[in-house]
Write a protein that binds this DNA or RNA. Structure first.
Length: 227
DNA sequence: CGGGATTGTGAGAGAACGTA
DNA sequence: TACGTTCTCTCACAATCCCG
């Protein structure tokens, strides 16, 4: 029975158009069906069918807003699943200069669904641990000092159903970066404040304004980009 | 009324299966 | 093994729906 279920789940992602859509959605944003159609290079009606299939399989959720219909990853675990599958696919060496540059950019800083990943993501985890903003004694927890620093940076720490912090294995660094509500809020704040910029895909560009706030998190951006 | 999204339908391609 | 048939899936066009 399990093999049938596995085959069904795999079949949903086995189509190139649906896989392209899922990868696009990994940037954490909500996309319209039209945008997804353009990204996958297929007709709108075909994209709508694919979205229906992804919704039925529980991969994505459709959110109606007025006459527009937005599509987003249904839950962070789905994003992780797709991320891990992408990790497996990207183990193959990139061909061509453009793709190798893209892989290098993704390796330095990118989004993993709704939080930072890559060298930068791992450095944030290391920095927050080294400066005592995060503790590991009782699982991953935010310390009092951590809450203070995040408040100073304007990063909201809201308790909800989602854990504040948890580890997420980074596919380029083979080490953990931070996932959860706090890293998601941190990425939102970083984009909003102009610390980082997004290139429309998953790669994240570190901007000059990032030096100070990231230093407060224990990350030396100069040392990071120089290494 | 215009624009974006969905649904129904049929064509085409490829996989799976049965048979000689 | 080769061939023919059947089935499934993807795709796009056209009609329709829905909302601002």
């Amino acid at each position: 029975m399990e093999t049938i279920a596995l085959a069904e789940v795999a079949a949903v992602l086995a189509d190139p158009s649906r896989a392209t859509m899922c990868l696009a959605l990994l940037d954490g944003r909500a996309w319209t069906v039209g945008e997804l159609a353009k990204a996958a290079g297929i007709a709108l009606s075909t994209a709508s069918e694919h979205v229906t299939r992804l919704v039925d399989a529980g991969f994505v959720a459709r959110v109606k807003q007025g006459r527009a219909s937005y599509v987003r990853i249904a839950d962070p675990r789905v994003a992780e699943l797709i991320e891990h599958l992408a990790q497996h696919a990207e183990h193959r060496p990139p061909s061509g200069l453009t793709s190798s540059l893209r892989v290098r950019r993704l390796g330095f800083a990118r989004t993993c669904y709704d939080h930072l990943a890559g060298v930068l993501g791992v450095a944030v985890r290391d920095g927050m641990l080294a400066t005592g903003l995060v503790a590991t004694a009782d699982g991953l927890t935010l310390t009092g000092r951590g809450r203070e620093v995040l408040a100073e940076l304007g990063v909201p720490v809201a308790a909800g159903r989602r854990p504040l912090l948890r580890d997420c294995l980074d596919w380029t660094e083979r080490r953990d970066h931070l996932a959860g509500a706090v890293p998601a809020a941190l990425l939102d704040r970083a984009v909003e404040a102009g610390w980082v910029g997004r290139d429309g895909h998953r790669a994240v560009k570190v901007l000059p304004a990032a030096a100070k706030p990231f230093a407060a998190l224990g990350v030396d951006l100069d040392a990071l980009s120089g290494s």
